[in-house]
Design a binder for these strands. Structure first.
Lengths: 201, 201
DNA sequence: CCGTACTTATACACCGGTGTTCTGGATACC
DNA sequence: GGTATCCAGAACACCGGTGTATAAGTACGG
């Protein structure tokens, strides 16, 4: 695998790098529309030969994972820009709204990853980004605006679960895409409210 | 396909019927453990030849669907025994607890159905059983103990979504199976509470 | 402008899973 | 006990998708 005599990693040629990102973008795009999209389609959509694709990603699994990570990196950039200090409930709403946009865009890629990546592989990639949410929830719990009778991890899970549910409902035609953010936020805020407290309206 | 001169549909022979239910049970069992279980495994587990299986279910899709319906019938029987009159919140808890047990048992079969059945096919089977829940929620909304600022269908969806989330969390080892019912109920009760009201503890 | 890295098309091997066909044998039903 | 029905096992064809080899062409980079 070493490329030069000095064992220095030679830079990829520019056209190769261009192709790689084209492939990743195409994969994300294809998988978002159909999580089962095959290599042929992805290569075609990237404007690249199938063999070229295999030159960069040895197996389908590697490609799916790479595409997933690619999406995650983009998501991270967006989420990093959010200011989550201040009232945890407001921060939650902010985070949920933005996360929803991301989720909505990449839902197919996520489905593909869930379908094909070995169990727990996704988790290990998502762990990092998830910390942001866990921290926020933990803070809210400490301040007492979020419930503490349920484990933090469960509240974290609900965050994604509710969004996943919204995706399904939209797909089924029972929820309008433009209502999703509101509905998600209303649900989460209520679900996170400590028992005995009033549900924020 | 007609079997007799009187064009009356001749009953299947008893051993055939026995095999069919054996196959359905086996399918349910195998798919619950691995949603991707293949025909060979299912036939073997049913103690039946692969060809016999194909004699009763022409394609894998038909088998999966039949197994799903089979599970649904069993679930229906259990749920029918529940008394859901009285306080909607208590009824909800009752319904959720029982539904969870069912969901937990057949999660794999559900996953298989989601994976392989054409979009909406599941929905059409589940519509009936779901009415029970929709009615309960509607009643609670009218009485004012469940929120009305979100569509009934969304609350219905949350019911299943939360359980789905619990399945994942258990699979990931972040939730103990014995805690699931409590956590689910606490989440649903809070999520269903009308804004401005106190979350029941 | 030359060498190398990269791309491409075609063609092929492989794989697991699905579904079919056949034949001999067992078993339920009357 | 005779017969239609059903079952079993093996063999095979098929399919879509994945991955590999080859050989010729193209574009980058120095």
């Amino acid at each position: 695998m070493r490329t030069g005599p000095g064992s220095a990693v030679r830079e990829r040629r520019s056209d190769a790098r261009r192709n790689i990102t084209a492939i990743l973008d195409a994969a994300l795009d294809c998988l978002s529309r159909d999580p089962q999209a095959n290599i042929v389609d992805i290569a075609k959509s990237a404007g690249v030969g199938r063999v070229t694709l295999y030159g960069h990603f040895a197996t389908r699994g590697q490609l799916v994972e790479a595409a997933f990570v690619h999406a995650l990196r983009q998501a991270e950039a967006t989420l990093d820009a959010l200011d989550l200090s201040g009232d945890p409930r407001q921060a939650l709403t902010k985070l949920a709204t933005t996360s929803w946009q991301i989720m909505d865009r990449y839902r197919g890629a996520l489905a593909a990853a869930q379908r094909e990546l070995p169990l727990g592989r996704i988790r290990s990639h998502v762990d990092g980004p998830m910390e942001r949410l866990a921290a926020l929830i933990g803070r809210g719990q400490q301040v007492g605006v979020f419930r503490s009778d349920l484990p933090t991890e469960w509240l974290v899970a609900m965050f994604y679960t509710v969004m996943h549910g919204a995706v399904s409902e939209i797909a089924a035609g029972r929820l309008l895409a433009e209502d999703a953010a509101r509905v998600i936020n209303a649900t989460l805020v209520a679900a996170y409210a400590p028992p005995g407290s009033k549900v924020p309206s």
